[in-house]
Design a protein around this nucleic acid. Structure first.
Lengths: 124, 124
DNA sequence: CGGCATCCCCTCGGATACTG
DNA sequence: CAGTATCCGAGGGGATGCCG
């Protein structure tokens, strides 16, 4: 399951990806960049996610130290989610992913055919 | 921060993450950065992955335009995997993830925590 | 408001065996 | 060498209902 390859690179990529692995984690992190949000505010920004799943993924992000969950002892309850310094340090990556994703989508529409030229280069 | 929703109302961050979602895709992409590798060369670099899964994830990456798969009509067969321009454009992100992952693990060792708990022992 | 509890389905990833 | 073909268990993610 877990191989701790420390220095030789490679594995850190896996480590990082595991932390943001979860259907909605990336988007949640994105919306939390530089912003503190309550549970339902976050839900409103990610309409497709269900409460259960959002809760679960937020808890995992909390467990992994990417965000903090602050419960206010009020009625009605208020719970605020906010990125930790560690979570905020993902900002360049998240923004890069956003840009890359946007460009990818743009390429889908544009006539930028990659062609299905096949493995015609197969030698004799 | 602007929404930047794509045509199907999906966040670009999500789009990007979907493409590299898959237990071994990130590592595979990492190993293919600037390098053309044969199937078994890739396997050797990711010893934990099984044949079936590696094949599947590589095919998905190919389908999504991140790499090319070139089959040489030889005996024994030779299949080379190589990142497309689009795949190579992920390089800064992959490298950033690698660095971030390394720093994350470094932080695990040195007690720099701020939110007291979450230090639950990972019971097997 | 912001959760749990429960049920369920379906995909992902792994193990093993066979083939062109 | 580089794959398919099966089979399988785990769990991620969704739907719904109840609660402090």
């Amino acid at each position: 399951m877990r191989e701790l390859l420390t220095s030789d690179g490679k594995c850190p990529v896996e480590t990082a990806l595991e932390l943001i692995d979860g259907k909605w984690k990336g988007v949640a992190l994105y919306h939390l960049l530089g912003e503190t949000l309550r549970f339902n505010e976050l839900r409103r920004r990610i309409p497709q996610v269900t409460q259960r799943v959002l809760t679960k993924q937020l808890r995992e992000l909390e467990r992994d130290g990417l965000l903090t969950r602050t419960v206010f002892a009020e009625v009605p309850p208020r719970v605020e989610y906010r990125l930790t310094e560690l979570g905020e340090s993902l900002k360049p990556i998240i923004l890069a992913l956003r840009q890359w994703g946007a460009e990818y989508r743009a390429r889908q529409d544009s006539p930028h055919q990659e062609s299905g030229d096949a493995a015609a280069k197969a030698a004799a």
